[in-house]
Design a protein around this nucleic acid. Structure first.
Lengths: 255, 255
DNA sequence: CCAAAAGTGTTCGACTTACACCCATGG
DNA sequence: CCATGGGTGTAAGTCGAACACTTTTGG
């Protein structure tokens, strides 16, 4: 039924896993144990196996290479799968398709198609490396000299994350379930690399409908007045929902 | 070198080709001559051949099934290929990757990966059908009961186009090289399905930096004062550039 | 009491909107 | 001259930026 002239291509998934640590954006990278690019750093990823969906392949490769796993019981949206990592910090995930690269001129072994995914998570520890990779770790963005065309894929993933912070509740994907407005603001500042006015941000974030819901709890960390804790309004998808009005980055409005 | 457990997947490209005709958004559809879904309407597309890039496959399938061709001499951006159709109206094209679907549960013949592309062009006539398709034609959006998962792909493409009109010069891709402000406004109105105030739109469009450049020419079509002709500022990519401030659709600002 | 962080009120300027008004052409 | 569409001026409302100010904790 499928024409004989049609090519069949090996397909890989590569995951741009981003988090905010120490006030800066970090990406999850592995060191390659096998050729090609042995010893180089790369995005976690690998070949899609027969019978798998792309998202299944992405979560499987992430588990094999970095030890981060998500149970199959996770709630799943249209283009988004959310899970809870059973590894260390038990953070929630948000996985979103980025774009597809190839198949020509990106792998020395021959034509390979790669479907890139963007994963956003709060900071958590890395349990172990495994599979075809060693020394999984968080590296500050931008990272350089990655294997294959991963420099470009990383740049595309970071740009997507930056853009989506503006008009979606995506920033909450970098926070734990309950968070303060200041923690949320630190996410915006880290991803955009800008400084935001704490007062105006507080009013804007709490005033945007469909975004933040107070939990009634407070934190008393460090000096200063205790902050109220918020969560994303239940039922709202951090990757699919749209904020009105948007949270614009300062440079945006230089007309 | 590539592990034997890795699957190899047939890969197709499907093109969501949009244009504005008679004040409404239309999509280019073909009638399938072969099973599966023989006789059903579908997006133009087909299998990627060995040695091809995804964009090459997209333009080849478009040419085979609809007769619309673009020369290889076209200027090419990062994720965007622009061409000039040699068919009838000689319009410029803008091709942009949409997203990837599959490989499971979308083709009765088995797992098939499909990379969807979004093509935007000014209205032009369709020369002929060919290849595995007949009766290529423009159909009003939304279209229903398309083959495979093409209903969803079309919906994703239309939503992408609607969103990108706001913050990119994408609307100019639906116009010929020189166009009036009213023609540009009709594009926004057709894609969004809204009415815009002609006076305010004129000021906004001509006042946004990096968007419109007067050519010095005028049109004298029909009654009324002749309109000045504009073009997109040279060197600006309709798909990649960002407008500041954006052209927001009216419903957007209901806070 | 003081430092520090959370949260509120207020002012100013930029932008959106609605619409009055003028301009230039065909019939 | 008048209908039609192109283009500009202007005033009211809305929103974000900047920042003074109050609140609530720890030392």
């Amino acid at each position: 039924m499928i024409p004989r002239t049609a090519g069949a291509f090996p397909v890989t998934v590569d995951v741009v896993a981003l988090t905010v640590r120490d006030g800066a954006l970090h990406v999850l990278l592995v060191e390659r144990l096998l050729d090609p690019f042995r010893g180089a750093r790369a995005l976690p990823g690998g070949f899609v196996l027969p019978g798998e969906s792309l998202e299944q392949a992405a979560t499987r490769e992430l588990a094999e290479e970095t030890g981060v796993t998500a149970p199959a019981s996770a709630a799943t949206g249209e283009a988004t799968r959310s899970g809870r990592a059973t590894a260390v910090g038990q953070p929630e995930w948000h996985l979103e398709q980025l774009r597809t690269y190839g198949p020509q001129d990106r792998d020395p072994r021959g034509p390979v198609l790669s479907v890139a995914y963007l994963l956003l998570a709060p900071a958590f520890g890395l349990p172990e490396a495994g599979g075809d990779a060693a020394a999984a770790g968080w590296f500050p963005v931008p990272a350089r000299d990655l294997a294959f065309d991963h420099d470009r894929i990383l740049a595309d993933g970071v740009e997507r994350a930056r853009a989506k912070l503006e008009y979606s509740p995506l920033a909450t994907a970098f926070c734990h379930e309950e968070f303060t407005v200041a923690e949320l603001r630190h996410v915006y500042e880290a991803v955009w690399g800008t400084h935001l006015d704490a007062r105006n941000f507080h009013r804007k974030a709490t005033g945007t409908p469909g975004f933040l819901e107070p939990t009634g709890h407070v934190t008393t960390d460090g000096p200063g007045r205790p902050a109220e804790l918020y969560r994303l309004v239940p039922g709202v998808s951090p990757t699919a929902a749209v904020l009105h009005p948007p949270i614009l980055r300062p440079a945006e409005r230089s007309a």
